[in-house]
């Protein structure tokens, strides 16, 4: 476990923790982007360059921006009642999450696994070949899924006929 791994983990965990704990939603979305950049760095660190760059493209470039847009589109109207979160709801949530974390970490530490630390290289060319041969069917299905999801998203979010623009 190298220094760089520790630093990258810190970036990821702090970014993720910030992303779910700020009260300003914009800050949350920006912290999410930080966490995603950290994850991309982790993938690069682990030698999966293509996944790292995909992570940057999809999460930092697209998902964070879409989240930002959603936040801006759903600014509450000035007269809407504020959201009062009962404190016990929060505490229960954090407690449950902490419990799961403890259990998971315990399970990981309790499992004897051997790390093979040899050099692993996967080139973009290899990935391309695999996508076109072994994984051709999943690729097509994912393409279909993305198309369907995007069309569905547009249909869901489009203003209904006759509805006034806010």
């Amino acid at each position: 476990m190298s220094i760089s791994f520790i630093i990258i983990s810190m970036i990821i965990l702090l970014g993720a923790a910030a992303a779910v704990s700020f009260s300003n939603l914009i800050h949350c979305a920006l912290s999410l982007a930080v966490a995603m950049v950290g994850l991309a760095m982790l993938y690069l660190h682990l030698g999966a360059e293509f996944v790292g760059f995909t992570q940057v493209l999809v999460y930092v470039g697209a998902v964070s921006i879409v989240v930002l847009f959603a936040i801006l589109l759903t600014r509450p109207a000035p007269f809407s009642p504020g959201v009062h979160v009962p404190w016990h709801g929060r505490v229960t949530g954090i407690l449950v999450a902490g419990l799961v974390a403890g259990m998971l970490v315990g399970a990981v530490l309790g499992t004897p696994l051997t790390s093979h630390v040899g050099q692993r290289v996967i080139t973009v060319k290899q990935i391309g070949m695999e996508l076109m041969t072994t994984y051709a069917a999943p690729l097509e299905i994912v393409g279909l899924l993305l198309t369907a999801a995007l069309m569905g998203a547009v249909i869901l979010a489009a203003p209904e006929n006759g509805e006034k623009k806010p």
């Binding site: 709801g89 229960t92 449950v96 999450a97 419990l99 259990m103 315990g106 399970a107 309790g110």
Partner: peptide, 24 residues
């Protein structure tokens, strides 16, 4: 929805606990 999720989470943790005990 969150109450449901809480229950699922707690159940998951219990399941893990049971498994770990079982393994040990």
């Amino acid at each position: 929805a969150q109450r449901y999720l809480c229950v699922i989470g707690a159940a998951f943790a219990l399941l893990l606990l049971a498994l770990e005990m079982g393994v040990k």
